[in-house]
């Protein structure tokens, strides 16, 4: 049975006397416990608005959202906070506080009027810190943590609410690539181990494709398609959704490339295999060269061979050794045009 279910949902903004602005209409959604779902789509498609609606902060224009069978928007705010936790995008500033005190805020929906923490609350706080691998950060001041550590503490704060559903809006957008990957892996692990449903919006399609159990794809034309990432990629839905954003989904490579027209530049033959060859290909393509497999030397202007240390560049009868890809590119650029 699905934990979160929405039927005939329309999401958007009421605008006083004018007709409401509908971003997505007539959508059926479901989300099961233990599942990690990524909400993807081009900017302006309404990802954040949908998340705000599913978080209960905003009423839907039509339809009903239920969380474990109960109407989400009829629920008391405190009761909702016991079942559903949110992490919004951007770094959170809390003033002078130890990481553990920030996580302790997550117990608010469970404590009484004075906010006094019982033994069970302290245990939940420690468990949340341990779940995000941040037990050793507990007594560090929040403002002295790195952005990535701080976001982990934020996620621990949400976990301390002991939610059935965790909603995150761009939880890693301002972090570097390694931290983004770490946060995604962490969320995937939380869904598997803690058994809560995780829904996050993300700009990072490659990470979303790699970690999500399912994608909710908003195309920006008012539709939402749900499915396994691979199905959406193979069926062409991904490339259709992002076409307008100037992106093209390369189904073979499994990655997005920008739709800049490939220059019909000179051809370079590439000899070699493995990681070094793959990065050499990237560098050549970025330099505007057409890379071909060995055997097409006849058409190629030059040939590059990947060595143990460095590269060998063959231009006609001359051979040159290059120590870096940068010097290889500049040597190619300086070569006479035949």
């Amino acid at each position: 049975m699905s934990l979160l279910a929405a039927g005939g949902l329309a999401v958007g903004y009421r605008r006083g006397r004018r007709a409401p602005l509908t971003l997505v209409a007539d959508v059926d959604l479901s989300l099961a416990a233990g599942e990690l779902v990524c909400l993807v789509g081009p900017n302006g498609a309404g990802k954040s608005t949908l998340l705000r609606t599913l978080a209960g902060l905003q009423r839907p224009l039509a339809g009903r959202v239920t969380l474990a069978g109960a109407d989400l928007h009829a629920m008391d705010a405190r009761e909702r906070a016991q079942r559903l936790a949110t992490v919004w995008t951007g770094p959170v500033e809390v003033g002078l506080m130890a990481a553990r005190e920030l996580v302790a805020l997550g117990r608010h929906p469970h404590t009484g009027w004075s906010g006094r923490l019982r033994a069970a609350d302290e245990a939940a706080i420690d468990a949340a810190l341990a779940a995000v691998d941040a037990a050793e950060l507990a007594w560090q001041p929040v403002d002295q943590l790195s952005d990535g550590q701080r976001q982990k503490i934020n996620i621990a704060r949400a976990l301390a609410q002991e939610p059935q559903l965790l909603l995150l809006d761009e939880p890693a957008a301002w972090l570097d690539l390694a931290r983004r990957a770490e946060i995604m892996a962490l969320l995937q692990r939380l869904a598997r181990q803690q058994g809560c449903a995780v829904l996050l919006s993300s700009h990072d399609l490659e990470l979303a494709l790699r970690h999500a159990d399912r994608l909710w794809l908003m195309s920006g034309d008012g539709t939402l398609r749900a499915g396994a990432p691979e199905d959406l990629a193979l069926g062409g839905a991904l490339s259709t959704a992002f076409r307008s954003a100037g992106l093209h989904y390369d189904a073979l490579e499994g990655k997005f490339v920008s739709l800049q027209p490939r220059s019909g530049g000179p051809t370079v033959a590439l000899h070699g295999s493995g990681t070094a060859a793959s990065w050499t290909r990237r560098a050549l393509e970025r330099g505007g060269y057409r890379v071909c497999e060995p055997g097409c030397e006849r058409a190629a202007r030059a040939a590059v061979k990947v060595l143990q240390q460095g590269w060998e560049l063959r231009l006609g009868s001359s051979r040159r050794r290059c120590e870096s890809l940068e010097s290889l590119l500049s040597a190619l650029a300086a070569a006479p045009v035949d």
Binding site: A55, L57, D76, A77, R78, E79, R80, A81, Q82, A85, T86, W88, V92, L105, G106, H108, P109, A158, Q161
Partner: peptide, 8 residues
Amino acid sequence: QVAQGLGL
């Protein structure tokens, strides 16, 4: 926003 999410 966070306060709202905490049920306040």
